[in-house]
Simulated scan of single mutants.
Amino acid sequence: MVKITLVAGARPNFMKIAPIIHSLQRHITKGAKLNFRLVHTGQHYDKKMSGDFFDQLNIPEPDANLGAGGGSQAEQTAAVMIAFEKELLANKPDLVIVVGDVTSTLACSITAKKLCIDVAHVEGGIRSGDLTMPEEINRMVTDSISDHFFTTSEIANQNLLNSGVAQERIHYVGNTMIDTLLANRSKFTKPEGELFDALEAKKYFVLTMHRPANVDQEGQLKAMIDAIIEGSQNMPIFFPVHPRTAKSLENLGITYSNLHMVDPLGYLEFNYLVENAFAVITDSGGITEEASVMNVPCLTLRDNTERAETIHLGTNELVGTNPQNLAPFMGKLMKGKWKSYQGIPLWDGKTAERIVGKILEIYG
């Protein structure tokens, strides 16, 4: 019997673990000698930021919730490590699977390795090269101690090889977030409310911003939103506001007739908006992947990206964090001269099956 502990911490993790859970369940039903526990660290504890995702993506209730939400990065890391150590001592697995690059990914991989438990990193090997991003540190540390790497691209494979990881520990499988996207695309749901009733497909923008470089300095945030408004030609902009951003927006008192600030949306509602949008403007990594596969133009408000394949083969372009950079990209977009999705290898909806197959091959 192969015992697996699967870790989810923050909102992006839930889309990445859902297909792995479903694949494990299918294999168990067919008699595979597998057993898994789902551990939610509680890093994201707002209902809209976590609970809805479990419901919509048909993820079972976690076997354990570590309740480690809130506090600074260091406080969260410490809280997750203390609680996860107790979890592992009480229910020792053969393998801990961590996904993505959030605080919980780092904390749980360290805790598992100190207890001499194997760690597999789903989405291993991606790099932005930007050490001002907490996520980059999380990726580097997790990858430095993991035993197996389930990768999304050839670029990630090469990053791992360059850092000295042996070829046999790198498993190129694709992207579980895209498994989730493709499995749920037919279920995307228009958000409820009068604001969304008049939606016209391909005649509005979706905007998301949460990174410190864009939202922590109010002057920068205002300048970026002003630039977006100026380039939008009065097209509606729907802006689901991350809790981090809401505080800054309150202080600034920003109001534009075509800027609609809304609460965070569930997975099915948010991706309905993205799929039907004229374009997406974001500083998120995961959204660039989803927008690319749905062939929706994507403008990324960052100076770098760990998902270079979305630029080479997808619909994504790096705008940067200087608001003055935005105008030429918006101009190109408005003229209908944006690139189309070229197809990214193995982003085909079968990644989780490849992951579970490889686990059975290694540990079965």
Rank of each mutant, 00 (worst) to 15 (best):
I311C: 01
L299S: 02
G343L: 05
V356E: 03
I355N: 02
E306V: 01
I355Q: 06
L318Q: 06
F329R: 06
L301W: 09
G349K: 10
N316L: 00
G349Q: 06
P323E: 01
A327V: 14
K332V: 12
W347K: 02
Q342T: 08
G349C: 04
N316G: 01
I344M: 13
G336F: 15
R354F: 11
K339R: 15
C298S: 05
E317M: 09
E353H: 00
L333G: 03
R302M: 01
C298P: 04
E306S: 06
A327L: 12
W338I: 11
R307E: 08
I344H: 07
L346H: 14
I344P: 08
Q324G: 07
K335G: 00
Y341L: 09
I344W: 07
P323A: 06
T305C: 00
S340D: 12
D348Q: 11
P328D: 02
L346P: 02
V319S: 03
K339A: 10
T305A: 02
R307P: 09
Q324Y: 15
T321K: 04
D348S: 12
I355G: 02
G331A: 13
K337R: 15
Q342L: 02
E317S: 11
N304L: 00
K350D: 02
Y341I: 06
K350L: 13
H312M: 09
W338Q: 11
E317C: 09
P328F: 10
G357L: 10
A352Y: 11
G343E: 05
G314N: 12
Y341T: 10
T315M: 07
T315H: 05
I311T: 04
G336K: 10
D348G: 14
T315I: 08
K335L: 14
L301Q: 10
L326Y: 02
N325D: 11
L346Q: 13
G336M: 11
T351F: 03
V319D: 04
W347D: 08
